[in-house]
Design a protein around this nucleic acid. Structure first.
Lengths: 205, 205
DNA sequence: AATCGATTTAAACAAATGATTAAATCAAAA
DNA sequence: TTTTGATTTAATCATTTGTTTAAATCGATT
C-alpha cells in the first residue's frame, strides 16, 4: 500500500539537532526560526547547536541541501528509465511525490519560499535542472509537445497539479472544511486523477 | 491588450509607507521584513512608521487585508455572472489573475506563506470561502463533477495551473533559462492554454 | 508675526536573538 | 584510579530590531 518514507533516526545529538532544525525551518522558514526553538525542539542546550554546526546559517545550509537531494533521489531512476512510457513516468512521479509530501507537507512551500527570499543558497538547483533536462523523461515531453508548445508547460502542469495543493493546504482545508486526514484522502484520490488529467492535456497538445 | 492593474499612488506619507510595506512584506515575508527596510524603502524616518501605524504588526494586518481583498474584488463579478458558461468564467479568471500577478508576482507565495506560518491572521479567508461556495461558478462546478469527484479538485486544478508558476518562478526561470520578460511571455501563453486544458480535464470528469 | 496642532526627526530604550566563553560532566583509555 | 578529550551546560556578550520619547520643523489659522 502506502510506501514508507524513511525518516532519519536521531540517535546522536547531531541528528537530534538536525531533525529539530528540519522541523522548525520547514515550519517557520529561516527568518522566523529561532535557534532557541530548534534547541528546545531537539531537547538540548542552545550552545550545543553552535558547538556542532557553528551557526544557524550553516545548519540551514545542511538541512536545505539534504531537502533538495530528496527531490532528485526520489526521481532520478524514474526519470531515466528508458522502458517506461511518459504516462507511466507521470504515474510514478505523482505517486512518489505525494507520498513524500504527505510525510513532510511543509517542504514545498519551505523550499520555494527560501528560493525566492535567499536565491544565493541555490547553486544546488543546477543539479535538478541538469537531471531534468538531460533525462529520458524530458525527451519524451519534447516528443509530445514537439514544436507546438514550450515543453516547460508540461512540467509546470505536472508539478503544479501535484505540489500546489500542499502549498495551499491551509486555504484548501478551510474552503473544503477538511482536517488533515480528509486532506490526505483527497491527495490519495489525486494520485489516480492527475495522470488521467495529464493524459487529457497531452491530447490537446 | 494587456489590462492595466491599478497601482495605488503614494502621494501622502501614509500611502508611501503602506506601499513600501507592501513591497517589503511581499518580498521577504513578515518575519524577515525589518521596519527599517520599510522606512528606507518609503524614504521616511523610522519613527514615522509607528506614528502612522502603531506597530509592524498593525501595518502588516492592513497590507494583508488589502491584498486579500484584491482576490475577491477581482473575481466577485465573474463568479456570479449567471449568463456565462463555466469555461467562460475560467477564461476570465485566468486572464484576470495572470494580469494581477504579472504586476505583483510575489503576492501568491507571500499570502500562502503567511497563511501557514501565521494562520491566526486569516479570519478574512472566510470571506473568500463564502464568496466561492455560494457563487454561481461553484454551482456550475458541482454540476460538472456531480457525484463523481470532489468539486474541490476542479478548484485546485484551476488555481494550481494559474498560480503555481508564479510561486515557483525562480525555479522555472532557472530550468527554462528565462529572464522575467520571457517568463511573462510564457504566462501570456498560459492564458489561452489553461482554459483548453481545463476543458480537456472536464471531459474526463 | 504669534500660535497651535500636525508632522518629522534624531536619539535612545528594551527585548529578542545569534553566538561565545569558561566551567562542569562524562566516557573511554592508560 | 587517573587522565584526557569529547560533550554539555549556565551564564554572558554583542548585535539587531521593534518601539518610544522629546525635541524640532512645518503649515495653516488668528
Amino acid at each position: 500500500m502506502a510506501k514508507k518514507v524513511p525518516v532519519i533516526e536521531d540517535h546522536s545529538t547531531e541528528d537530534k539537532i538536525k531533525n529539530a532544525a528540519r522541523k522548525v525551518f520547514t515550519q517557520k522558514g529561516f527568518a522566523a526560526a529561532r535557534t532557541r526553538d530548534i534547541a528546545e525542539e531537539a531537547g538540548i542546550n542552545l550552545a550545543l547547536l553552535n558547538y556542532y554546526f557553528r551557526s544557524k546559517e550553516k545548519l540551514f545550509d545542511i538541512v536545505m541541501k539534504e531537502t533538495m537531494q530528496q527531490f532528485v533521489v526520489a526521481m532520478k531512476d524514474v526519470f531515466n528509465n528508458e522502458n517506461t512510457s511518459l504516462i507511466e513516468k507521470v504515474e510514478a512521479m505523482v505517486e512518489n511525490y505525494i507520498a513524500l509530501f504527505k510525510a513532510q507537507p511543509n517542504i514545498p512551500l519551505f523550499v520555494l519560499s527560501e528560493m525566492r527570499t535567499r536565491p544565493d543558497k541555490f547553486a544546488s538547483t543546477i543539479g535538478i535542472k541538469e537531471v531534468l533536462l538531460t533525462s529520458h523523461f524530458f525527451r519524451q515531453i519534447v516528443q509530445v509537445t514537439k514544436g507546438r508548445i514550450n515543453p516547460l508547460h508540461f512540467v509546470i502542469n505536472l508539478i503544479g497539479l501535484t505540489v500546489f495543493p500542499f502549498i495551499a493546504s491551509p486555504l484548501l482545508k478551510n474552503i473544503g472544511d477538511m482536517d488533515s486526514t480528509q486532506f490526505d484522502a483527497l491527495m490519495q484520490e489525486r494520485k489516480k486523477l492527475i495522470p488521467e488529467w495529464i493524459q487529457a492535456i497531452i491530447k490537446t497538445m
